[in-house]
């Protein structure tokens, strides 16, 4: 397997826009404009010194435009990437070692996400000062707070805890 994540899109030259990584994770086929939310949901903000490159609105066959996120030096676990399914359901995850893609998988919808989203309901016990981790069950078309049972179907990215 070559390291090239996107030859099939017929846009070889876009690789120039996002540098190759040696070891780490490439998150590809993220819906255009969602790359920063992907980083937020993974809790990656650069303060830990990770080398991160982001390509936004890159031409793609699957979507008109897609985003790509590359994180050097960190292999994301399946659990970590599964939460991405909430905002980037079509994303593919490439684990790269020594410039080779050694694993490639799709995100899967988890049953529950913990500590990732904050509840939008001001009347919810999790929105106060309680020592409690947010927990949402994942529905077919949204997420639901395990505490107050509020269902959110739209703009889930806006709930990402910062």
């Amino acid at each position: 397997m070559s390291d090239d994540h996107d030859h099939h899109d017929g846009n070889d030259d876009h690789e120039l826009r996002v540098s190759k990584i040696r070891d780490g994770t490439v998150i590809d086929h993220v819906r255009g404009g969602q790359a920063l939310n992907v980083l937020a949901i993974l809790g990656i903000d650069g303060t830990n010194g990770e080398e991160v490159s982001v390509g936004m609105n890159v031409p793609s066959n699957r979507f008109a435009r897609k985003d790509i996120v590359k994180v050097e030096g960190r292999e994301l676990s399946q659990d970590e990437v599964d939460v991405l399914s909430l905002i980037a359901p079509d994303a593919t995850i490439n684990i790269v070692r020594d410039y080779d893609v050694v694993e490639k998988h799709r995100v899967e919808r988890p049953d529950v996400v913990e500590g990732v989203l904050s509840c939008p309901n001001a009347g919810c016990i999790t929105t106060g000062d309680e020592p409690v981790t947010s927990r949402f069950t994942v529905l077919e078309d949204g997420v639901r707070c395990s505490y107050c049972e509020t269902i959110v179907r739209e703009e889930i990215a806006s709930l990402i805890e910062t």
Binding site: G123, C124, I125, T126, V132, S146, Y147
Partner: peptide, 23 residues
């Protein structure tokens, strides 16, 4: 007054907890 209060409280105690209304 908060929704989900009883669910959360029950995670912190071992004695039986009865919800008498959570918001």
């Amino acid at each position: 007054p908060k929704q989900g209060a009883a669910t959360m409280a029950s995670e912190f105690v071992d004695v039986p907890l009865l919800n008498a209304g959570d918001g």
